[in-house]
Structures are given as structure tokens and as C-alpha cells.
């Protein structure tokens, strides 16, 4: 059974997939028929949405769902920590995207993402273990 927190991670990753593909398609069409050279500016946001928003976020959501759990009633560890990580990660991605308008916020976004990943690793650390222990 997929926990609510994984539902949020995975659904968010699918939204980033669509947003990232949209930006990629706009750039690819520009490479083909040069209808609006300015669209190439979205390249860093395309990379951010697809590498972090889609691939990394999907992996985080699925790992939280399927990694070995603790005893009965099958606890997934400190869920509050992972909720915080999910919020920080998504805030970070959106702040990085704001770099299109305010270049300097890029660093703030990356700090949020780094925090998200550290908290996530700490929260899942002890679930990297054999089943049933």
C-alpha cells in the first residue's frame, strides 16, 4: 500500500515531468524552426524540473514506499522528517526556477534542496537493512 507521503512525492514528480517536457518541446521546436529564440532561456529550468523534479523526486517517493519497514505495525520511521524533506525539495525546485527572473535566488533554491536531501537520507538511513529485522 502506497503511503500518503509517497503519493505526494510521485504525483509532484509527474507534474514536473509534464512541465519539463513542455519546456523541452518548446526548445526543440525552436531548434527546428526558430520561432522565438528567447525560449532557449528555459534550459536550466528544463534540466532542474526533469533531473530533480522528476527523476530524483520519483526515486525518493518510491524508496519511502518500498524500503524495508520496522516491526509491527510496519512503521516507516520518522515520517515528519520525510514530510519536511518533501516540502523543502519542492520549495527548492520552485525557487531554483525563479532564477529565470531573479538569478541570485538560484543559490537559495540549491540550499533548500541540499537540506531536503540530507534530511531525507537521515530519515531513511535505518531502513536500508534486510527485511524483517
Amino acid at each position: 500500500m502506497m503511503p500518503r507521503l509517497s503519493v505526494w512525492f510521485v504525483r509532484a514528480s509527474m507534474i514536473y515531468l509534464l512541465a519539463g517536457f513542455t519546456l523541452g518541446a518548446l526548445m526543440l521546436a525552436q531548434d527546428g524552426i526558430s520561432y522565438a529564440p528567447a525560449v532557449m532561456a528555459v534550459l536550466p529550468v528544463h534540466m532542474e524540473f526533469l533531473l530533480v523534479g522528476w527523476l530524483v523526486q520519483l526515486a525518493m517517493g518510491v524508496a519511502f514506499w518500498i524500503f524495508p519497514r520496522f516491526g509491527l505495525p510496519h512503521s516507516r520511521g520518522n515520517e515528519t522528517l520525510i514530510w519536511a524533506s518533501c516540502l523543502l525539495l519542492n520549495a527548492g525546485i520552485l525557487v531554483v526556477a525563479l532564477e529565470l527572473w531573479i538569478p541570485a535566488v538560484f543559490l537559495i533554491g540549491r540550499i533548500l534542496e541540499t537540506g531536503a536531501v540530507i534530511i531525507y537520507a537521515a530519515g531513511l538511513w535505518r531502513r536500508v537493512k534486510p527485511h524483517g529485522t
Partner: peptide
């Protein structure tokens, strides 16, 4: 490329 972009989307 334009067609390919639409198809991939």
C-alpha cells in the same frame, strides 16, 4: 524536430 517535440510531449 517540431513533430518530434510534439510526439515526445
Amino acid at each position: 524536430l517540431v513533430v518530434s517535440a510534439a510526439i515526445q510531449f
